[in-house]
């Protein structure tokens, strides 16, 4: 019963050549990731580069192997919206966690766990709050 008149056609069959090119690009990016892992990049740079490459690879998979390249705008919007909501779910609770204690606790609260741990290790009573 579902074989009804369709609205705009959304499927465009693609040539195998396109998949080969994308596959080659993915392989090259994987090799690049491995190559960069052998080079020391100081600070956060290594992670940033690896994440950038992974993002490009993920985008290629979504666009070509998952056919988003051939889809009309609304279908691409569905994927982008999903990504936005995953980011939302992760970001705001993390923001809560990052801002919860410094705003809620007294100024010396950040060092309290360390001081308590030291006191336990030294077999001494936990330090009283000043």
């Amino acid at each position: 019963m579902s074989d009804h008149t369709a609205a705009p056609a959304t499927t465009a069959h693609t040539h195998a050549g396109r998949y080969l090119v994308v596959w080659a690009a993915l392989t090259a990016l994987t090799a690049l990731t491995w190559g960069l892992s052998t080079i020391h990049i100081p600070g956060f740079g290594g992670v940033a580069v690896a994440l950038a490459i992974a993002t490009v690879k993920g985008t290629l998979v979504a666009l070509f192997f998952m056919h988003l390249w051939d889809q009309p705008g609304p279908n691409r919007l569905v994927l982008i919206t999903s990504l936005v909501f995953v980011a939302l779910l992760v970001t705001l609770p993390l923001l809560d966690n990052a801002t919860r204690f410094p705003l809620a606790n007294p100024p010396d609260a950040e060092t309290a766990p360390q001081r308590i741990r030291d006191a336990i290790l030294n077999d001494a009573p936990p330090p009283a709050h000043p």
């Binding site: 705001l92 923001l95 809560d96 966690n97 801002t99 919860r100 705003l103 809620a104």
Partner: peptide
């Protein structure tokens, strides 16, 4: 509607900033 859920947590220990 997805950006508002934290108003259920005002007194639950959520940070004042959030």
């Amino acid at each position: 509607g997805f950006f508002t859920w934290g108003h259920h947590l005002f007194t639950s220990g959520q940070s004042a900033f959030n």
